[in-house]
Design a protein around this nucleic acid. Structure first.
Lengths: 124, 124
DNA sequence: TTAGGATTAGGAATTGTTCCTGTTTTTATT
DNA sequence: AATAAAAACAGGAACAATTCCTAATCCTAA
């Protein structure tokens, strides 16, 4: 746990959003101007492997990171472009029941409208 | 439907695998050496938009293309590294029932062992 | 207190993809 | 068939996200 890794971890834990490596890098730079991009990427991947944070891979977007390491899904609001948490149960079971295979892992990326954007549009 | 686009389309339709843009480019180059990378990408994206082919976006991998335009999922064999088709019904319904939102689209990427690799390993 | 290993900063290199420019090809119109 | 406009092309530069490399720095433990 070096100074840099601790800082990166704190940035992820403090943020209410799901930050990309680039965003984390810029945040880290504010508090530790000497930090390098490579350091951010290496520590992010290390911490993700060790299970301290979670990688979010959303099609067509840079990888993001989540403090919540309990497996869960994400959806992308097609209006505001933000990424939100989603908790869907039974996906693995559904896949295994229909395919007969043993699922090692999966990633489910959903596109829809978030609550905020939905009510905002309904009001118009 | 230019000569180049037809060629790209045929390559996708002929291949039993899910080719990446780069692989398609190299295949195309064999039959039409003057073809340019940009042409391949432009035509792939155009055809995907028009619904003639389908884009497969798998986390951590280059985009691939599928002749099968009927919505379906894919799984990545953690042994041989190949991508295979998967048909899982009821995903959208599961998401909507548990989230209360209207799903515009989703992408499900599964990691497991394919039939081939599974039996090969069991035999050992 | 010093050698060894781990980690860093800085930047070059890679990968996958898009964009730009000038040229060629196609299409429609006469 | 001639030609003007539109579309598509080749070639390569540019771009974004990420990894890799090297030399310098920082721990750590003997």
């Amino acid at each position: 746990m070096t100074k840099q890794r601790k800082l990166i971890h704190q940035i992820i834990c403090m943020s209410p959003m799901h930050l990309s490596a680039e965003e984390i890098y810029f945040e880290a730079k504010k508090l530790c101007p000497s930090i390098a991009v490579g350091t951010v990427y290496r520590n992010l991947n290390l911490m993700a492997e060790e299970g301290q944070i979670m990688k979010i891979e959303f099609p067509g977007q840079p990888v993001r990171f989540d403090k919540n390491t309990i497996p869960h899904e994400h959806f992308f609001c097609t209006d505001c472009g933000q990424l939100f948490d989603l908790n869907i149960k039974g996906i693995k079971e559904l896949i295994e029941a229909q395919s007969g295979m043993t699922v090692q892992g999966y990633s489910l990326s959903v596109r829809c409208q978030c609550q905020n954007c939905n009510t905002a549009k309904s009001a118009v």
